[in-house]
């Protein structure tokens, strides 16, 4: 009995660890290749350990594209987007959680049904609206349109329902707080955990977004990091500097991984909680 138990445990650890290694390898290899020259990378067998050319690659990267500028664009766009998302979704989620008003039922159903729509399929008319607004080659096109997303409203409604006591609102009313200000004065401060969980999620989505900047941005000075990577790939027929490309990819991924490792527990539990209630 004892023996089979130990055997089982070893087997289970092996399966789970093997999967974990397969998950980690591409990320690890990206970092490793960032420290090699292109000719090293294309040698056989390819390098699997770190080399000594990271500084050379960083020089090459800064010399060929405006990497720092693009990274700043990514930070700024994602931060502005998250600020809007958190404001709009928490207001919406709070209203749906705490108020009964004419039409609240079907308005909420409408909001949920938009989750199923692959909105990206309608990128052509979406693009035309952006053009009409004069937002082509403008960061506003990345910041505003998805700022009140249905997932966020749904998620915030769940959070408010489960963790904001109604007494809090009643107490505020008794104290003479105006109805319109209850959210800002009393409720919003208690939502900090929800803000950080949803915020990092939306930050990551914005940071990694590819098709929207690809379609909307024209000038190099406005590019975000995924466009930088495509820019570095250039014309594959002429070949490109893979070492520099891997350095750029690593630097684009690293900040997000660090952020994720710091907040992963809250991030994942937030998702799990949402999955169950959903």
């Amino acid at each position: 009995m004892q023996k089979t138990n130990r055997f089982n445990r070893v087997l289970l650890y092996t399966i789970v660890s093997l999967g974990a290694l397969l998950i980690l390898f591409p990320i690890y290899w990206m970092f490793a290749l960032a420290t090699h020259t292109t000719s090293d990378i294309f040698s056989f067998p390819p390098p699997v350990w770190f080399g000594t050319f990271l500084i050379t690659n960083i020089h090459g990267l800064l010399g060929s594209v405006s990497f720092l500028r693009h990274m700043w664009n990514s930070v700024y766009v994602a931060a502005a987007h998250v600020a809007l998302v958190l404001l709009f979704t928490s207001m919406g989620g709070y209203a749906f959680a705490m108020y009964r008003f004419p039409g609240h039922r079907w308005l909420f159903a409408l909001c949920l049904s938009t989750l199923m729509i692959p909105w990206i399929a309608n990128i052509i008319p979406w693009f035309i609206i952006i053009r009409e607004l004069g937002w082509i080659d403008n960061h506003l096109a990345l910041i505003v349109p998805n700022a009140a997303n249905a997932f966020g409203i749904f998620w915030m409604r769940q959070y408010v329902q489960s963790s904001v006591p109604r007494d809090l609102l009643d107490q505020a009313r008794v104290d003479g707080c105006h109805e319109w200000l209850i959210y800002f004065r009393v409720v919003a401060p208690t939502l900090t955990p929800a803000f950080s969980a949803l915020g990092i999620f939306m930050f990551v989505l914005s940071w990694n977004n590819f098709i929207v900047p690809l379609v909307v941005l024209r000038s190099d000075r406005l590019y975000t990091l995924p466009l930088t990577l495509v820019q570095l790939m250039g014309d594959p027929l002429r070949g490109y500097d893979v070492g520099v490309l891997m350095t750029a990819a690593s630097l684009a991924v690293l900040p997000i991984i660090v952020l994720f490792l710091f907040l992963s527990r809250r991030f994942i539990s937030g998702l799990m909680a949402g999955a169950i209630k959903g």
């Binding site: 789970v16 999967g19 974990a20 998950i23 980690l24 591409p26 990320i27 290899w29 990206m30 290749l33 990551v204 940071w207 990694n208 590819f210 990091l225 995924p226 990577l229 495509v230 790939m233 490309l245 891997m246 990819a249 690593s250 684009a252 991924v253 997000i256 991984i257 952020l259 994720f260 490792l261 992963s264 527990r265 991030f267 994942i268």
Partner: peptide, 19 residues
Amino acid sequence: YRTIYFMPVVVSSVAISIV
């Protein structure tokens, strides 16, 4: 393990497709 398995979700799809 949960953290490791979840990590790809936050990694840029363009970057990892290149890898």
